[in-house]
Amino acid sequence: MLELQGLSKHFGGVRAVDSLDLRITPGQIFGLIGPNGSGKSTTVNLITGLLPVTRGSIKLAGEEITNLPTHVRLSTGIARTFQNIRLFGQLTVWQNLWVAENARAQRERASFLSRWLGGERGARTRITRALEFSGLADKADELAANLAFGEQRRLELARAMAAEPKLLLLDEPAAGMNPEEIGALDDRIRQIRDSGITVLLIEHHMELIMAIADRIAVLNFGQKIAEGTPAEIQSNPAVREAYLGTAA
């Protein structure tokens, strides 16, 4: 589904991401872990086009997308959530979902005019479904800024899903959640995978990632130091060294 080849991002002299090779096969939950500052978030920003690539290439389903402008990437099938939640706070829940739905219209090559002048009617059933899926049906007219933290996280996920992506990038979705909420998140991510969407999951929370990831890659100082199944990663000495500082 997603293929990174020799992907590099340098900030001045700092190599935030350094010749990273990654292959994510369709239908997987792929975990990306690593200590703070190891280049995980930079990788996500490169894939979504928020940062220009220094070197290397990004392919989605065999198609080269390395230099596509950010706003086009959603319609190629990449959606994301943010580590620190980003929503349009002055818009209602419903309106937040409506925007993402635009990507689908773009993909269906609806004309510029009909996309711009189109009302909410066509999107209604899809948005209602997304609201029910994330348990926000009774909050449709609430401003996003007025939601509780957990609800905002769910809304963010619902927004990413409303774009009907092929690949979903989740940047630390469990940050700030309690164990109960994490359990619910766990189920939701599995459901997403089972519906045929590939998931790239960046997470600090080891238990969550070990429990649900099909495959995991570990970054340190911008380089991949290990890749394998959760069991393989747990027993990998290089990974332990990166996390604990010494070979245990």
Binding site: L50, H71, R73, L74, R86, A100
Partner: peptide
């Protein structure tokens, strides 16, 4: 409100 988020949203 958030040009960057808008861009990510296509």
């Amino acid at each position: 409100e958030d040009p960057l988020l808008a861009e990510v949203n296509g």
